[in-house]
Write a protein that binds this DNA or RNA. Structure first.
Lengths: 228, 228
DNA sequence: CAATAAAATGAACATGTGTTCACTTTATTG
DNA sequence: CAATAAAGTGAACACATGTTCATTTTATTG
């Protein structure tokens, strides 16, 4: 007579019931544990986001994230397969909101000129409030996976600008030009005159400096697209 | 009676002569060995420059440099105190020449407008010929020491542009503007529309694409400074 | 040649950090 | 409570790479 996993199924009714009990007693996820899981995942994301916002991607390590989220480092891997994936996820999370604001603002306004102007100004104002994060998303060097996201984000911004430029040309508000190249140029202007300098500045700029800077950038952008 | 380094100086004339012979026989550097030293140093620099030109700073390691220069890795440290210093040195070497060309070209031309135009076109043409190196110098992320050099280089380029813009305003060729901000913007335009895209491109662009691209960039720059 | 020291070598060391995994703790179920 | 498995832990491992240093090789000199 044969046994399976130590249970003699045929020879003894008691063994059979034990087997069934074992099967029924299996641990399963409940709503409560699922909620707890999400909570922990959220804590990890929050910790990573906080580190990136204040110190950029260079200041992030699995140990630091785990500590901030009050976890062991190994636990992070129960929620994200690798550091890259965690960073990439957090990058998308952080950039999505800002991109949506830009895209939305690009649709509001009487003329294309005003729409572009407001888009540039709005982005600049928000970037000044979160200089380290803006730099992390726009310009900071990171590993390949995150870098791909960064390239995509810059392209997404460029796409918003390209749409505006195309419309502007149709409306004869802007001169004829290669919309995609001009769009990239606007991203470059903003990155180089605003995001990068802000990330290096030690002190916050005054309100006066801020409006002068934004004014200059906005004028540059308008001239670049040949706005009347 | 005391001995110094095994030589009994006072008790024995033979010991004294031995001491003098030892002193005279000392090995000294000759022209030949000095030349050899320079040769080796140059080999290290060439190897590093080659690696940076083809793979950027990310593709450089002391072992790789040593191998290319046909040396042991430890020997590199006879010539450079650290990897950072080697990279920083090579960075300066590579960027100095191009910066000089830009600075020189910015002085040539009938009008400020033409001078700026030619400067932008010249830089762009050269960047297209060495896309990986241009990217390494202008945009590639590296360690802090090299990063400082990169920031300085971008500022140096911006300074050239700022001088042109200031002159252009004086001549009423360009509109009134913050010269330093516009100058940074020009660097941003070129980096974002030319250097970064080129570094990502898999194939070389055709001559036709090249002239169209440079034309667009040049027009963008001229419009940005409000050139008549 | 002998004495000397500079030059060269490369294995070993140091370091930082992402990742794993054997083990412990906790939650679930009848 | 007993059985189960998911969740959690953190020390150990993996790996890349900059740097050191005891040792060997080479060049120089009378």
């Amino acid at each position: 007579m044969r046994s399976i996993a130590g249970c003699d199924l045929i020879g003894s009714p008691i063994s059979l019931s034990r087997f069934l009990i074992r099967f029924i007693m299996a641990y399963r996820q409940t709503e409560k544990t699922k909620a707890r899981q999400l909570e922990v995942r959220q804590a990890i994301v929050d910790a990573a986001l906080d580190l990136i916002t204040n110190r950029g991607f260079s200041g992030i390590s699995i140990r630091a994230v785990a500590e901030k989220a009050k976890l062991a480092s190994g636990s992070v891997y129960k929620h994200f397969a690798s550091k890259s994936e965690l960073c990439s996820y957090v990058f998308r999370l952080a950039s999505k909101a800002e991109l949506a604001r830009v895209a939305n603002q690009s649709l509001q306004g009487e003329t294309v000129r005003i729409r572009l102007q407001q888009t540039v100004i709005g982005f600049s104002e928000r970037a000044i409030k979160q200089p380290r994060l803006s730099y992390a998303l726009i310009a900071e060097p990171v590993d390949p996976l995150v870098d791909a996201e960064r390239i995509k984000l810059r392209q997404d911004y460029a796409d918003v600008f390209a749409e505006l430029i195309t419309e502007g040309m149709q409306q004869k508000e802007f001169v004829e030009q290669q919309a995609n190249i001009s769009a990239a140029a606007l991203v470059g202007i903003i990155a180089e005159t605003l995001v990068v300098p802000l990330s290096r500045a030690k002190n916050k700029i005054t309100v006066k400096q801020q409006s002068a800077l934004i004014g200059s950038i906005q004028e540059l952008c308008m001239r670049a697209v040949g706005s009347a």
